[in-house]
Amino acid sequence: MNVLIWIQVDTLCLICITGGVMRVERVRTALIEADGGFFRNWRKELVSRRTFLARMAGVSVAALFPLAAGGASPAPKSNAALPDDQQAVLAAVQQHLFPSEPGIPGASEINALAYLNNVLADPKMDEEEKAFIRNGTEWLEELVREEQGGAFTGLNAAQREQMLRRIEQSSAGENWLATLLLYLFEALLSDPVYGGNPDGIGWRWLEHQPGFPRPPANKIYGKL
């Protein structure tokens, strides 16, 4: 039954939001076309994502499958630190999405998990988005248990790819992966003062020239 989790989440989304999937598509098109213009403030990627996230916020495996509630854990309170097993799943997903190579940084070299934990601990970040990141981890684990009879961390690379491509088929899954990728890019390319991109490793790899002056630790987001 839990195989359907991502699809069910998607259906729920479609019921709640008129044309939910279409809007996500439209956002993507706009983004590619606008190519990140800053002269004009084009719609950012998050268009309608919060609507989506708000609908997702209350969704847990238990909520989707009340009959199976006994077997499903409730969504964790959003400000609590992620339990170790979920940390391990997130780290494994990040590493799969952004693998390490000799001389080229991957998720572990850019401190991607620590960076994501900072995001999840930021009181100013959207609670819905934080809950969505956490819940997605649970949904993935449920799906893997159902399909493969184990944990995501126990899968080989091909199986991980298969599972992630599987969840990508739903808009909930696609959004979850797109969100993790966004924070991977932040960990790769934000100023090292935020905890990712140690010593500018991401900038060096992509030959990116940061601007100056660079922010001191007491003048960063959250402290200004």
Binding site: L31, E174, F185, L189
Partner: peptide, 25 residues
């Protein structure tokens, strides 16, 4: 615009969905 995260983020979208792993890099 030189903003690096803004330039990187759209690269995750391919012709048929998300791009990740070595192809993304």
């Amino acid at each position: 615009h030189p903003n690096a995260i803004a330039r990187a983020n759209p690269r995750k979208w391919g012709e048929d969905g998300l791009v990740w792993g070595l192809p993304l890099k």
